[in-house]
């Protein structure tokens, strides 16, 4: 090992801040999607409209009684008013009788 005679001696502090977010539990999962109401949330980017249409087809093939509330009914979840839009979401989902949510698109 190389010795550095003029390398000094330092006691260096941790440069990061402490995390402020405690781990939270996810919502309980559904046992079955048949007959359930699924909301589509979209940030209006990256072809989400096409993906949601295909997902509806794929999910309906397996769960004939599944229902969807379109992304068109919610507006974008990403934009300069994101904080307000997200704050209003829980009440809106409850009012619409939603059971589960599909959210996109991270690309």
């Amino acid at each position: 090992m190389t010795t550095h005679s003029n390398d000094g001696y330092f006691e260096a502090y941790w440069p990061r801040g402490e995390r402020q977010q405690k781990t939270r539990a996810l919502a309980p999962r559904l046992t079955d999607l048949d007959g359930k109401v699924v909301a589509q949330l979209w940030d209006y980017l990256f072809k989400g409209d096409e993906v949601f249409a295909l997902l509806e087809e794929g999910l309906r093939a397996r769960y004939p009684n599944i229902r969807f509330i379109s992304w068109r009914d919610f507006g974008s979840t990403h934009g300069d008013d994101e904080k307000e839009a997200l704050a209003a979401l829980p009440a809106r989902l409850k009012a619409l009788g939603v059971d589960a949510v599909i959210s996109g698109m991270a690309c």
Partner: peptide, 12 residues
């Protein structure tokens, strides 16, 4: 936000 409010999610 949805999970915290009790709605299970799938994130694309």
């Amino acid at each position: 936000v949805c999970e915290a409010a009790g709605f299970p999610t799938a994130s694309l």
